[in-house]
Design a protein around this nucleic acid. Structure first.
Length: 649
RNA sequence: GCGCCCGUAGCUCAGCUGGAUAGAGCAACGGAUUUCUAAUCCGUCGGUCGGAGGUUCGAAUCCUCCCGGGCGUACCA
């Protein structure tokens, strides 16, 4: 059972005579940080003492006198300055655990008032292959969908794909001028990706060539500025501002040099390749022409629309294979193009309501406290992703009746979302929770965004393949007892699980350093450790030839005869709290943490408590039930994260 | 310039709606099981929570300032 909620509820009752606002104090009852303080602790006596002008220990004593918890715990203790420590009655814990072992939902309550959630995640650009940057959004979004759904909410997952932007002009341009028909027939998506990269490269080339002289001029100026600043700083060693200024301009120079080097490198690549250079020279205005293709598409040009209609489904199908590997299913994939017809209305409405003004030719919404404008229509008349996002909000609120809309997107876009939500509110969409579920960057060992040695972004497909290959080595070392097919299957689970788990177990706000070694470690807080714990439980049930269904139906009691059994039982009863905690602030890492603790509790139990040889039979049955429930919690918990398990590994 | 985020053990990270002696994992070191999978368990070592003030009975957590780092910042999404 949910002991935490139950105890809080009892505390609420006890508090009513002491304060008018018990709610703030009820939350101060929490699981104990340390086992020696019991199973739960209430910290509310100290702040209450101030209100009622008594000593904290007296308040604690008064609360205990009013608390009706005799059926749940031993008499609570007062400790330290006035902490109230609760220790569950082991008998009651055993009874409740027995109930949990028979419960389909493993004690996880469904919410009393379900909401409609839109979870917007992954959202790749259909023109380009997915890369490591899409990993976190996909994995976190998937986990949140599963958790919210499991809690009983109505969840609609939406893949807000980029299918209407400038990249499509590039593909169309590439297709018209550079396509390799045989390659396109063989693997259309790969050929389109090649065309995108090629056009992008050539357009970049011309931009950079045009820009380099300006950059070099800037470098000369910057060098002067550095020299001046250094002089100033040297003249007044005590002047901190001068030192800071010197440092700043030095950094600017370093950045500028890096920019120039990178530009020269990119230009050099084309110059050094006669075939590329020939193409570049033949298409000097490629950037502008590609943009024109985009504009034509938006204007309804028949040929471009036909190409678009041909390309998009193929790209979507390619994405689908990736999602399959992650176990991701979208309820809808309403991309930018889908909202295209609604964009003029949005701008009209903003103008009508005097929310948008024209500034420097662009139609903008200005939000108090933000210097940057929210541009809904560019000077050239084109709409932006701001406009699309507003149309999306309207659709989600008015048509889908969303209570909450979550955007699982990179933290770098926080300013955009701040402006978006503020604008939506001004438009009157103020009854819906809009939430930017932001996350940090995946870094390489060099603490820079994760790239290949040569500096390219890492494709998601190859990342997953590599994970599975690496996992295969580990499986081969450890699992000679499995068949070839089973080892292959386990390798997929271990490799995918490792990637997903590492991502989710970090606080989503943080950047994290990607490390194959840590991720695929067979010990520690990893997916493998959890999966292995699951497999060990299954091993017991298999070896004992136990039919789990019969076991659950037999009505055995749970006996908690040792600390390890008691700890495991308590941990299993906390599953409901862990799942609910994820949904409060959309933090899957709270669930990975719980699962690791659970697997850990089980491993201790496994060491201390023989199961199959336990005597008498009632104890054996009790331990088997604990095993079965542990397996189900681990499986269910990992499943909520999008991670699979194998019964043998 | 303005805005957002971050700085916790040698390394990677939790903890941040204030609560007891700041926790994991890895690494290092030492133990355990001829036993249901050793992809295990138990223990030891390891921290001025970037710094200084402030609020509080109590601060890693809240406020202010400083230092250091990242990101964003008008027509890409």
């Amino acid at each position: 059972m949910d002991f935490l909620s139950e105890l809080r509820s009892r505390l609420r009752t006890a508090l009513t005579s002491l304060t008018d606002s018990p709610e703030t104090f009820v939350d101060m009852l929490k699981p104990s940080q340390d086992g020696k303080f019991g199973d739960f602790q209430a910290n509310c006596a100290m702040p209450l003492a101030k209100l009622v002008k008594q000593t904290p220990r007296d308040v604690a004593a008064a609360l205990i006198a009013k608390l009706d918890v005799a059926d749940l715990c031993e008499t609570p203790d007062i400790a330290g300055p006035g902490f109230i420590n609760f220790r569950l009655k082991t008998e009651r814990l055993a009874d409740e655990t027995a109930k949990l072992t028979r419960d389909d939902r493993l004690g996880v309550a469904t919410v009393t008032s379900p909401r409609t959630y839109i979870v917007d995640f992954s959202s790749p650009n259909v023109a380009k292959p997915m890369h490591v940057g899409h990993l976190r959004s996909t994995v976190i979004g998937n986990a949140l969908c599963r958790v919210l759904q499991f809690l009983g909410h109505r969840v609609l997952s939406d893949n807000h794909v980029g299918d209407w932007g400038t990249q499509f002009g590039m593909i169309i341009y590439g297709y018209k001028h550079f396509r390799d028909d045989a390659a396109y027939r063989g693997d259309p998506v790969a050929e389109l990706a090649r065309l995108y990269r090629l056009v992008n490269q050539l357009a970049d080339y011309h931009d950079l060539v045009a820009n380099l002289p300006k950059l070099r001029e800037k470098q000369a100026a910057s060098e002067m500025a550095v020299a001046t600043a250094r002089q100033t700083s040297a003249a007044k060693p005590a002047d901190k501002d001068a030192a800071r200024q010197a440092k700043k301009v030095e950094q600017e120079l370093v950045d500028l040099k890096a920019e120039i080097t990178s530009a020269e490198k990119k230009v050099g690549v084309v110059d050094a390749n006669p075939a590329l250079k020939l193409l570049a020279d033949a298409h000097p205005k490629i950037g502008e022409l590609a943009r024109r293709e985009t504009a034509k598409l938006h204007a309804g040009d028949a040929e471009n629309k036909r190409l678009w209609d041909e390309f998009v489904p193929q790209c979507m199908a390619a994405l689908e294979s990736m999602y399959k590997r992650f176990g991701v299913q979208f309820d809808m994939a309403l991309g930018e193009s889908w909202y295209n017809p609604m964009l003029p209305d949005i701008v009209d409405e903003l103008k009508k309501k005097n929310l948008a003004v024209v500034s420097e030719g662009a139609t903008c919404v200005f939000v108090e406290g933000n210097a940057a404008p929210f541009i809904v229509q560019k000077a050239d008349g084109a709409f932006t992703y701001a406009t699309t996002d507003l149309a999306t909000i309207r659709y989600r609120v008015e048509t889908l009746h969303a209570d909450a809309s979550l955007y699982v997107v990179d933290s770098r876009q926080s300013e955009h979302f701040q402006l978006l939500f503020a604008t939506a509110k001004k438009m009157g969409f103020d009854q819906t929770e809009f939430r930017h579920v932001s996350f940090g960057t995946v870094l390489g060992e060099d603490r820079r965004p994760y790239k290949t040695r040569s500096g390219d972004t890492i494709g998601l497909e190859s990342l997953l393949d590599e994970a599975i290959q690496n996992a295969r080595k580990i499986v081969d070392e450890n699992s000679a007892h499995l068949s070839e097919a089973d080892r292959a299957n386990v390798s997929v689970l271990v490799g995918m699980g490792a990637i997903i788990y590492v991502d989710l177990h970090h606080n989503r706000d943080s950047d994290y350093v990607f490390s194959w070694e840590k991720m695929l470690a067979t010990n520690g807080d990893t997916a493998t450790y959890n999966q292995y714990a699951y497999a060990r439980v299954c091993g017991i049930l298999r070896k004992g030839e136990v039919d789990a269904r019969e076991l659950r139906a037999a009505g055995h009691a749970i006996q908690l005869t040792s600390p390890a059994e008691r700890a495991l039982a308590l941990q299993l009863n906390r599953f409901t709290n862990a799942v609910a905690d994820v949904s409060i602030d959309y933090r899957p890492n709270l669930l990975t943490q719980y699962l690791f603790e659970t697997a850990n509790c089980f491993a201790s139990f496994y060491n201390d408590c023989p199961v199959l040889t336990a005597e008498p039979a009632s104890l054996r049955a009790s331990r088997l039930l604990l095993c079965d429930a542990t397996a189900r919690v681990l499986k269910q918990g990992l499943e909520l994260l999008g991670i699979g398990v194998a019964e043998q590994m």
